[in-house]
Amino acid sequence: MNHKGKKIIDVAGFYLVSALMTIIVLIPFFWMLSTSLKSKGALMALPIQWIPEEPGLKAYQQVFERFPFVRAMFNSVGISVFYTAITILSASMAAFAFAKLAVPCKKVLFSLYIATMMIPTQVTLIPLFVIMNRLELVDTYGSVILPAVFRAFAVFLLVQNMKSIPNDFMEAAQMDGAKLGYIYWRIIMPLSTPAIASLSITTFMESWNDYLWPLVMLSDKKKMTLTLALNSLNGQYTTDYNVLMAGSLISMIPIILVYTAASGKMKNGLMAGGIKQ
């Protein structure tokens, strides 16, 4: 076979496999969309309707009637925003100290951080519940947000990143009499933008999609996050798949929007953070 023929097969193969993979990824979403437009009767019609014969938005209406879904959406947004902001603030301050400052017993402290990363969250689940109970935080937004103060992984990630920032900038600023707070906020933070941007996205996603911890903490319908709202819909209307699929679809939209917006920003951040050495 000649060279050109080989190339055509290569290109065709690429698009064939990519298309196949795309179909595999999208089939469940197609089924979700199709189902969410059906009436309850059409759910159990045999043979199944691949595309709803009488599409309607009744299921979407029911999602909002049966559960304070708008409220849940605001709860999720609020909790995730605060959770992310607190994670970034607390972790970046600690990382600044570990990466750039003299700290008493630095080695011991930092090893302690690494060690806590090995304990699975399930181990601390029950004691944390007890502590939240003592602090009278059970069933409050605070209980879901507070764990953001200590995220060993976030600290570890930012330390690795900040270590690569040359000390020259800081030393120059210090000679000019800049305070540590200024150095942290005006020099180190801007230079860590790419790492902070990607950490923000993953933290936001984690908080948005978290299930076990809010499940344990929140029982008031008005305070529930979107994942809990879906879970609760599932508990009450197990067989109304049109409503469950409509709810699932609604819950996916915000995070996809945030991700696409943020990943665009991240590319810019990568450029802005590029430093000459």
Partner: peptide
């Protein structure tokens, strides 16, 4: 700079 994170570690990780 370390205080919030350290306090968090004690209350939210070491104590649990």
């Amino acid at each position: 700079f370390l205080l919030p994170s350290l306090l968090g570690m004690v209350v939210l990780s070491l104590l649990p």
